[in-house]
Design a protein around this nucleic acid. Structure first.
Lengths: 214, 214
DNA sequence: GAATTAATTGAACGTTCGTTTTATTGTTGC
DNA sequence: GCAACAATAAAACGAACGTTCAATTAATTC
């Protein structure tokens, strides 16, 4: 047999991407076989090669588009005229929302970096670094203007990223906490971490302020 | 050929463990082949099966001993008579020291859980949960006695664990910061996160206090 | 120094892997 | 309705995988 009735390239490619993200997130890139992926899509393994030349290229595509999506989401979410606290707030909100929404893709992008060739690894890491650089800039600005009080902006940025991204490890939709509640608590913790102050009010008010906006 | 001069079972097994931790941390469990591991040790692949019946058993052994080591280290580091701040301080110090010292083993224990059979996965997760439970208890006690001021102890515990364990992602010995400096900053950030207070002094002093002890 | 045990080699087993090739069929444009 | 094209199936490729087995030699025991 050959072409099946109703087959459509675009639909198949989309199905491959989605199945690949789920399988890689669950079993890992090396553990997922092309035959397993094909079976999940409902197709023969050879058909996958019409859309992705190699297995690694498939992985790279998934990661690159995930990182591009993250950058795009932040560009859209970043407020134009905002003080440091508002910027940081927007960054945290966007980061948590994006990562909860794409738990599996995030897992893939974080855990399978070692399966990329050096050049592709560099490319992904460059995108990640650029994204993290935005956070460092926000923290540095806020520290210099007195909105924050930070010991080490580099370390604080890394700690914040790890803390926020860590949400996907334990968060499951529909359990004890809603996304809004989780976001509110993480905003509160973020403001504590950076020693945030607003208009001279003390820290506790910052938390309440952050929670109201979440 | 057969047995080689100077061969010693104990030494070979130790060499296998060490090589396995490094290879799995670098390439991943699935990507590491038994032949690759054997070559690293300087032995034929068949020789590995004298010490570990299967590849998965080898992985499980590495993980279990890592978790046992973590529990043992905390038992030894936990102060007998201490208030909440001191307990938390000891927990953070021990956690960071242990994980920096065993970066590769930590990477393996965190990233390769999905390669374990369900029963073995359960066993490792039980050990991890027990360890994290200690932190939650410290946070809850401190919150109830007023030493800390925490919104959600469960979330704060997870955030702290993610933040601290994340050190191994970027920390490299001999770079910008020493272990002591990193620990001091993380202690400071920890006390901020839990809203730590000592004798009614305000938060900033807690940080300085923590840094002096690091 | 012979017998026993410990440690390892080298070859082989069956399976699965990513990928390629070729043929075949559905779909589309004229 | 016929050519051109798109999308797939089916089979096969060599390589690599985890693992087993028999043979062999070093170390130990008595």
């Amino acid at each position: 047999m050959a072409r099946t009735t109703g087959s459509d390239g675009e639909k198949t490619e989309a199905a491959v991407r989605e199945a690949a993200v789920n399988l890689i997130a669950r079993f890992g890139y090396e553990a997922m076989s092309m035959r397993q992926l094909a079976a999940e899509v409902g197709v023969q393994a050879a058909a996958l090669y019409r859309y992705f030349p190699t297995k690694e290229e498939l992985l790279f595509t998934l990661m690159r588009e995930h990182m591009e999506g993250l950058a795009t989401a932040w560009e859209a979410a970043r407020p134009a005229d905002a003080d440091s606290a508002q910027l940081l707030s927007a960054y945290v909100r966007n980061h948590i929302a994006f990562h909860i929404e794409r738990r599996h893709a995030t897992h893939v992008s974080n855990m399978e970096l070692r399966s990329l060739s050096p050049e592709r690894l560099t490319q992904i890491l460059r995108m990640r670094t650029a994204y993290e650089k935005e956070l460092r800039a926000i923290l540095r600005d806020g520290d210099e203007t007195g909105a924050f009080s930070i010991d080490d902006t580099g370390l604080t940025a890394m700690a914040l990223i790890q803390m926020m991204t860590g949400v996907i490890v334990w968060f499951r939709p529909g359990e004890r906490l809603s996304i809004a509640e989780v976001t509110a608590t993480y905003l509160s913790m973020t403001m504590r971490l950076v020693g945030g102050k607003i208009d001279g009010r003390e820290e506790k008010n910052v938390h309440e302020h952050a929670q109201l906006r979440a």
